[in-house]
Measured scan of single mutants.
Amino acid sequence: NQESVVAAVLIPINTALTVGMMTTRVVSPTGIPAEDIPRLISMQVNQVVPMGTTLMPDMVKGYAP
């Protein structure tokens, strides 16, 4: 099972992602793959992401799977 990126904290809208904001977990449905965390650093979320929420591609500005 592939791990997906999950919010480790509440991430406010338009916040640039940092390593500490993200964790990984096997979830269903799957979100952004864990191995993409290095690509996500400094990208901004386009909505509020509650802690424990799986990051989906459409939540991150400029992210393309």
Results as ranks from 00 to 15, higher is better:
residue 1 N to G: 07
residue 1 N to M: 03
residue 2 Q to S: 11
residue 2 Q to M: 11
residue 2 Q to K: 03
residue 3 E to G: 03
residue 4 S to N: 02
residue 4 S to A: 04
residue 5 V to I: 12
residue 5 V to C: 03
residue 5 V to Q: 00
residue 6 V to S: 04
residue 7 A to F: 02
residue 9 V to E: 04
residue 9 V to A: 12
residue 11 I to M: 09
residue 11 I to T: 00
residue 13 I to K: 08
residue 14 N to S: 07
residue 14 N to C: 06
residue 15 T to C: 03
residue 16 A to N: 07
residue 19 V to S: 14
residue 19 V to N: 11
residue 19 V to H: 15
residue 19 V to T: 12
residue 20 G to I: 12
residue 20 G to N: 13
residue 20 G to S: 15
residue 20 G to Y: 14
residue 21 M to P: 01
residue 23 T to E: 12
residue 23 T to L: 06
residue 24 T to Y: 09
residue 26 V to N: 07
residue 26 V to W: 05
residue 26 V to E: 15
residue 28 S to P: 02
residue 29 P to Q: 05
residue 29 P to V: 12
residue 30 T to C: 04
residue 31 G to V: 09
residue 32 I to E: 00
residue 32 I to W: 03
residue 33 P to A: 08
residue 34 A to G: 09
residue 35 E to I: 05
residue 35 E to C: 04
residue 35 E to L: 07
residue 35 E to N: 06
residue 35 E to D: 10
residue 35 E to T: 09
residue 35 E to K: 03
residue 36 D to G: 07
residue 36 D to K: 12
residue 37 I to S: 08
residue 38 P to Y: 08
residue 38 P to T: 09
residue 39 R to K: 14
residue 39 R to G: 06
residue 40 L to T: 02
residue 41 I to D: 04
residue 41 I to H: 06
residue 42 S to P: 03
residue 42 S to G: 12
residue 43 M to S: 09
residue 43 M to C: 03
residue 43 M to T: 15
residue 44 Q to W: 11
residue 46 N to E: 09
residue 47 Q to L: 08
residue 48 V to W: 09
residue 48 V to T: 13
residue 48 V to E: 08
residue 49 V to M: 05
residue 49 V to A: 06
residue 49 V to P: 01
residue 50 P to E: 12
residue 50 P to F: 04
residue 51 M to S: 11
residue 52 G to I: 02
residue 52 G to R: 05
residue 52 G to E: 10
residue 53 T to D: 07
residue 53 T to M: 14
residue 53 T to P: 00
residue 54 T to V: 10
residue 54 T to R: 03
residue 55 L to C: 02
residue 55 L to A: 00
residue 56 M to F: 07
residue 57 P to K: 15
residue 57 P to A: 09
residue 57 P to H: 10
residue 57 P to Q: 09
residue 58 D to Q: 15
residue 58 D to W: 05
residue 59 M to H: 11
residue 59 M to N: 04
residue 59 M to I: 06
residue 60 V to A: 02
residue 60 V to G: 01
residue 60 V to M: 05
residue 61 K to W: 06
residue 63 Y to V: 04
residue 63 Y to G: 06
residue 64 A to N: 10
residue 64 A to P: 08
residue 65 P to E: 15
residue 65 P to Q: 09
residue 65 P to D: 06
